[in-house]
Simulated scan of single mutants.
Amino acid sequence: MNTLSLPEPIAAYFAAEHKPDALARCFTAQAVMKDDGHTHTGVDAIKTFMAEASAKYNATSVPFALEREDGLQVVRAQVTGNFPGSPIDLSYRFRLERGLIASLEITA
């Protein structure tokens, strides 16, 4: 099986998906995250959103593709959890800045 080689902050993000404190350390202080029709700005807002989503959906993400697009790192991942339509493939569009995630947009 081929192992996907992700940039460090992105690998750390997926490794921390059920650990809000570890997840928060992946982002810049003023990071912006867009997911599920909402925008979350700043580490505290992102941490709160991710903790609530983790508790509600208990989702697990398995990245399977990485490409660059317009200066972004775009990861495709299969997400399985307690939500309608599971499993689903989602796109994670990361903009990295100084070794951290500056922005993230998650779309179907």
Rank of each mutant, 00 (worst) to 15 (best):
A77S: 02
S86T: 04
T48W: 12
R25W: 15
F83P: 00
S103M: 09
S103P: 02
G81A: 13
A77T: 02
T41M: 10
D44S: 14
I106Q: 04
G42C: 08
E8K: 14
Q73Y: 14
E67P: 03
R98N: 14
E69M: 12
V79Q: 11
F27P: 00
A77Y: 03
P84Q: 07
R98D: 12
A102W: 03
R95N: 12
E67H: 13
S5D: 08
G85V: 05
L23F: 07
K34A: 05
S61F: 13
D21A: 12
M33C: 11
N58F: 01
L4R: 02
A31Q: 03
S91L: 14
V43R: 15
G85S: 01
A45R: 03
A108K: 14
E67G: 13
L23Y: 07
A16W: 02
L96I: 08
D35K: 07
R98C: 05
D89M: 04
A77I: 10
A22C: 06
D36K: 15
R93N: 05
E8S: 14
L100T: 01
A51T: 07
D70P: 03
D36P: 06
D21Q: 08
C26T: 08
R98M: 06
K56D: 04
A16I: 07
H18W: 12
D44E: 15
M1W: 07
G42Y: 04
N2K: 06
C26K: 05
A29H: 07
P84N: 10
F27C: 08
L96F: 09
L96C: 13
A108P: 10
I10L: 07
S54G: 15
K56H: 08
K56W: 04
G71H: 03
H18P: 09
S103F: 06
D35M: 11
A12P: 01
G81N: 08
A11W: 02
A11V: 09
K19T: 10
A16T: 05
C26L: 05
K19S: 13
P84A: 14
Y92K: 00
T39V: 09
V43A: 10
R93D: 04
R93E: 01
I88Y: 05
T3M: 07
D35F: 06
D89C: 10
L6K: 00
R76I: 00
T39R: 12
A102P: 01
I106G: 10
L4S: 02
V74G: 03
K34G: 01
Y92P: 00
T48S: 13
C26V: 07
P9W: 06
L23N: 02
E8T: 15
H18Q: 08
